[in-house]
Computed example of a mutant assay.
Amino acid sequence: MIIRENLYGLNDLDNEASLETIIKDNEPKIINLIYGMTGDYHIAQDLAQETFIKAFQSRQLFKGQSKISTWLYRIAVNTTIDYQRKRSGRKENPAEELETKLDETQDPDQKCQKTAMRKMLFKAISQLPNEQREVYTLKEINGCSTKEVAEILNISVELAKWRLHRARMLLRKSLTQGNGYENMGSFKLTTAGIE
């Protein structure tokens, strides 16, 4: 994995095993968080790598007052916001497909439908206002509690709830208005894709 190769030279042997565990446990959620914020899976991979490098370089700042995943989410959000500020003059490309491992025996029509739904959903998420996109991605895609979302974003729990509510309303409107997907049924988005 690219992240592990780039971090290998930065750590000492005493921390290598714990670093590997931290990356393994948090990498998919960090990528999904950033993917939800940017709408581009390849950029999400790059920014996730940058997140882990920044976390390792500033590991002495982690005081253990929150979970390490909360600390990593905060670094990922800040890294993504910095990236978006730098690129604010240019429009991002539409969301690319999230690569998932699908069962080879799965019906090709079902695979195609899931891919289309996933692409449509992440495109809709990427069009949310930044504040709502951050809250929605942390809560709904990464499964953080509302309290964790508030802590990661340094906002009140009430504000996190309100932003989540607004994000859900905007997504519902976006996904049901004039796009031909009114009757697509229900689905659940997980770190492994759409179920």
Rank of each mutant, 00 (worst) to 15 (best):
H165P: 00
N130S: 11
G185L: 08
K63L: 12
I31R: 13
S69F: 04
R90Y: 05
A55S: 13
Q45V: 11
S156F: 02
L189E: 11
E134Y: 06
R4F: 08
A167N: 01
I155N: 05
I125R: 01
A44Q: 06
A192C: 10
S126L: 06
L7F: 07
R118I: 11
L138W: 09
I23H: 07
L47Q: 02
T105Q: 14
L153R: 10
K54R: 13
M1L: 08
E96A: 10
I194R: 06
R118Y: 03
F62N: 07
E96M: 03
R90S: 09
A167W: 01
L98V: 09
M120V: 09
E158A: 15
Q106W: 06
H165L: 06
S186F: 11
E195T: 13
L171H: 08
K63E: 15
E131I: 01
M117Y: 12
K101V: 10
K63P: 01
E92F: 00
Q49M: 09
V77W: 00
L61C: 01
Y136T: 02
I3T: 15
Q113G: 00
T191S: 09
H165W: 02
D12Q: 09
D103G: 02
F62E: 05
K173Q: 12
E134D: 08
T191F: 04
E96P: 04
P94D: 05
D103W: 11
E99M: 13
N130T: 12
L159T: 14
T21A: 14
N142W: 00
T100S: 11
K123Q: 15
D40M: 08
E96V: 08
A95G: 08
K67E: 09
T190R: 03
F52S: 06
A116D: 12
L159F: 04
Y83T: 02
F62C: 09
E27I: 07
I81C: 02
T137K: 03
F187C: 11
E140N: 15
G64W: 05
G39E: 05
L170V: 00
G36L: 05
I155H: 05
A150R: 03
F56C: 10
K86M: 10
K188N: 08
A192G: 14
L175H: 07
T137H: 04
K173R: 13
A95T: 13
G89Y: 02
A48M: 01
N32D: 15
R166P: 00
R87K: 14
L121K: 01
K123G: 06
T105H: 12
R163T: 04
I31D: 01
A116S: 11
D14T: 14
I194V: 15
E158Y: 06
Q177G: 02
L61W: 05
K188I: 12
R4G: 07
T21L: 14
E182L: 15
D46A: 09
S88P: 00
K161S: 08
K123F: 02
R59L: 14
I125A: 07
T191W: 00
K188D: 08
D103M: 09
G89Q: 05
T137G: 09
C112I: 06
R168T: 08
Q49P: 00
A192H: 13
D14L: 15
E134T: 08
G64P: 07
I2P: 14
R59G: 04
M169I: 10
T191C: 09
I43F: 00
L171Y: 03
N154D: 14
G193L: 06
L171C: 04
K173W: 02
A76R: 04
E97N: 14
R87A: 07
L164A: 05
R172D: 13
T176V: 12
T105L: 13
